[in-house]
């Protein structure tokens, strides 16, 4: 079902990883964002925060026998602790998130609106949702990067003028990373920054549900 020129989940993760700067504290949402940890450029010191109380979360243990049931990510996957990492309790963990200590949060998304509103916690027709830490983290992080497919199954745009899905947090998203493009959310609206190799600007425009400013030069995602 996927189009030939779309980036894989890992390729999107590799592009998001380039965006994370040396010295940042970063929270990765459950699902696709967790792949980002595998693509951090050599030499960049990035601390990962996991809302269940880990600062300095490292990758999955290399050997299965080193998996520890007391050392799991918020997505319940086995992880490690880097040297100098720390454990904190839940109230402190969300003091980190709400208190503005997260330089960035990489979160999955159902929809992003042109003002940066994020929808990612509940489907419109569902009776309820599993919010987890999404609302706290989206409201508190200095930057929220939305990481998602450009369109929903069936081709419906997920980058829209205004949300039709339930809000997670207002005006929080600053950049969107998809399988087709990198789109900045600016006070002047969406700006197309990069396209995936083999994807045309016209294809991105057609798959986007709001006006897109096209600069004179649009980069190509390194993939």
């Amino acid at each position: 079902m996927s189009e030939p020129n779309r980036l894989s989940r890992d390729q999107i993760a590799a592009r998001v990883a380039l965006e994370l700067q040396d010295g940042w504290l970063v929270n990765l949402g459950i699902g696709m964002p967790t792949l980002t940890v595998n693509y951090i450029p050599e030499g960049r010191d990035i601390l990962f925060h996991s809302e269940n109380g880990i600062i300095g979360m490292g990758p999955r243990p290399a050997r299965d026998e080193d998996i520890d049931p007391d050392l799991m990510s918020a997505g319940k996957g086995p992880v490690t602790l880097i040297p100098g990492g720390a454990f904190i309790h839940h109230a402190d963990s969300f003091a980190v998130a709400r208190g503005g200590r997260l330089d960035a949060a990489v979160l999955g998304a159902f929809q992003v609106a042109v003002n940066g509103d994020l929808a990612n916690w509940r489907l419109p027709n569902a009776i309820s949702g599993s919010v987890g830490g999404a609302m706290d983290i989206a409201a508190g992080a200095k930057r929220v990067f939305a990481m998602m497919t450009h369109t929903a199954k069936g081709g419906e745009p997920k980058i829209v003028e205004a949300l039709t899905y339930p809000l997670t947090a207002k005006t929080c998203v600053s950049k969107i990373f998809t399988d087709m493009a990198v789109v900045a959310v600016t006070p002047d609206g969406y700006v197309l920054e990069e396209v995936a190799p083999g994807v045309t600007v016209d294809e991105v425009v057609a798959a986007t549900g709001a006006a897109l400013t096209i600069p004179d030069t649009v980069g190509t995602i390194a993939a």
Binding site: E51, A91, V131, G132, G133, A134, M135, D136, I137
Partner: peptide, 15 residues
């Protein structure tokens, strides 16, 4: 019955 509470709010309400 169910009451859904954001995770950080859940922790802070108890704090």
């Amino acid at each position: 019955d169910l009451e859904v509470v954001p995770q950080g709010t859940l922790a802070e309400r108890m704090r």
